[in-house]
Structures are given as C-alpha cells and as structure tokens.
C-alpha cells in the first residue's frame, strides 16, 4: 500500500519543477502520508479505507507548489540584487586602485626615484585590473547558474542570457583595458614626458580590442576581424617606425605591401575552396 501512496504522489508532482525545495516538500509529504497511514491502520481501519483517508487528506498540492515557487522567485531576485551589489563593489575597488596608483606614483616620483614609482604604479594597476576582472567574472558565473533545472523553452532563454553575459564580459574587459591605457598614457606622459609618441598606445589599444573580440566573441576570428587587424597593425607599425627613424619618405611602402598580402590571402583562400569542391 506504501507503493500505492508513493505512486499517487508521483502523479501529483508530475508537472512540478525539479528543484531542491520541491523534492524536499515531496519527501515531507510522503513521510506525512506514511505516518498517517500507519496510524490509521494501527487504529483498526482497513488498508483500503486508510488509503482513501490519506489521499483525501493531502489537499491541493498546487497550493504548496505555488508557495514554493513564490519563495524561489523571491530568493532569485534577492540573489540578483546581491550580485549587482557585489559587482559594483569590485568595480569601485578597481577604479579606486587605478586612481591610487596615479597618486602613489606621483608622490614616489617626487620623493623617491622614478623606478620605484614605476614599480608601485604597475603593481597597483595590476591589482586594480585583477579586482575588476575578478569582480566581473565571479558575478557572471553566479548569474549563469540556473535557479532550477529547467527544460525546453526556458533553457533556450537561459542560453540567450548566457551569451549576452559573454557580450557583457567582453564589454567589461575592453572598457577596463581602455581605462588602463589612458592611465598608462597619463603616467608615461607626466613622469617620462613621453606624450609623443606615447599616444601610439591608443592605436595599440585598437589592435588589442580586435584581438579580444576575435578570441572572446561568439563567432571567433571572422574575415572582418582579420582585415581590421591587418590594417590597424600596419598603421601602428608605420607610425612607430616613422617616428623612431623619421624615414617617412619610405615607410609608407608598408600599405601597398599590406594590400598585396591581403589580396594574396584572399586568392589563396579562393583556390583552397575551389580545390576542395
């Protein structure tokens, strides 16, 4: 008869979501039913009679499931709130370390030597970057974890959320990279007076950004990425070599060369594809 009670509960929980709370409620309900059944039969009721009494005493399981659902939804929104707070804290801490690095570096540069200043500066920048990236990644992992194991449609939506959180991560990493580059630029400008050609750090930043997009993005390295990369690298190398050597009259040759490389790469690809077909 215990099996019959269990089977009845299985049927009642057939459409219930598969969460920890639901599993616990089900076990509790089973324990209650078995207790009641044992009690009734011990009091002299027939098994069939006791079974009917037990089943009719269960009541509206949907009511219980709704109570659980409400609690789960509440907890989910609480944990999302906590996550936002945690993330904001890490971002604030990271930015604070960046600002601190400038202050410490300028003080050390004034009262100690510039090598110490550079070391302290880079160490604080590294710490700030670590805090920023750690903050973003750790809060992202908890966002992705589904509250319950879900099926079909909801799982699809979770996938969408997780890809959009990849995009968010990319955004967070690139924006922290740019702020880092600005800080480094200001630092080498003020301390070493390398305003020029220090600004080349920004074309360099574009190269890094394209690489980040190609490695972290969903589609990987596309043709657009590859072309952008070739031309940005060319521009960077052109400016860098020209500033250092001052051979402007010859360095421009890099652009026709790059064009040739690009066309040859395209041709090679076309040939390879036509060979395959």
């Amino acid at each position: 008869m215990e099996d019959r009670i269990q089977a009845h509960l299985n049927a009642l929980f057939k459409d219930a979501p598969d969460t920890r709370r639901v599993a616990e409620a089900r076990e509790e309900l089973l324990a209650g039913c078995l207790d009641k059944y044992a009690d009734l039969t011990a009091a002299g009721r027939s098994p069939e009679d006791a079974y009917i009494a037990v089943i009719s005493g269960i009541g509206d399981v949907d009511e219980l499931l709704r109570a659980i659902e409400r609690i789960d939804a509440q907890n989910a929104s609480h944990s999302a709130e906590a996550l936002r707070k945690k993330r904001a804290f890490f971002i604030a801490a990271g930015v604070f370390l960046y600002i601190l690095s400038l202050g410490v570096a300028s003080i050390l540069n004034e009262y100690a030597d510039s090598r110490n200043a550079a070391t302290a500066f880079l160490a604080l920048i590294a710490a700030g970057t670590f805090v920023l990236i750690y903050g973003v990644i750790s809060t992202r992992a908890s966002v992705k974890k589904p509250v319950s194991s879900l099926t079909g449609e909801i799982q699809k939506q979770l996938d969408i959320i997780s890809t959009s959180s990849d995009t968010k991560l990319l955004g967070a990493v690139t924006s922290s990279m740019w702020s880092l580059l600005v800080v480094v630029y200001l630092f080498i400008g003020f301390i070493f007076d390398w305003w020029h050609p220090g600004w080349l750090i920004f074309p360099f930043g574009s190269i890094l950004q394209i690489l980040l997009k190609a490695t972290m993005g969903k589609k990987g390295m596309t043709r657009g990425h590859a072309y952008a990369l070739i031309w940005t690298v060319c521009l960077f190398v052109y400016l860098l070599i020209s500033f250092i050597t001052d051979l402007w009259n010859i360095t421009w040759i890099i652009f026709p060369v790059a064009l040739c490389v690009q066309q040859m790469a395209r041709l090679a690809k076309v040939w390879r594809e036509s060979d395959e077909t």
Binding site: E28, G32, G57, I58, V61, L64, R66, A67
Partner: peptide, 15 residues
C-alpha cells in the same frame, strides 16, 4: 488541516 496547506505554512514560516 490538509497536508498541502500545512506544508505550505511550514515553507512560509521557514522563509
């Protein structure tokens, strides 16, 4: 009490 009612109350009180 119906069991479902009672266990719903436990959940609320717990929370």
């Amino acid at each position: 009490l119906k069991e479902a009612t009672l266990y719903g109350a436990f959940r609320r009180l717990e929370e």
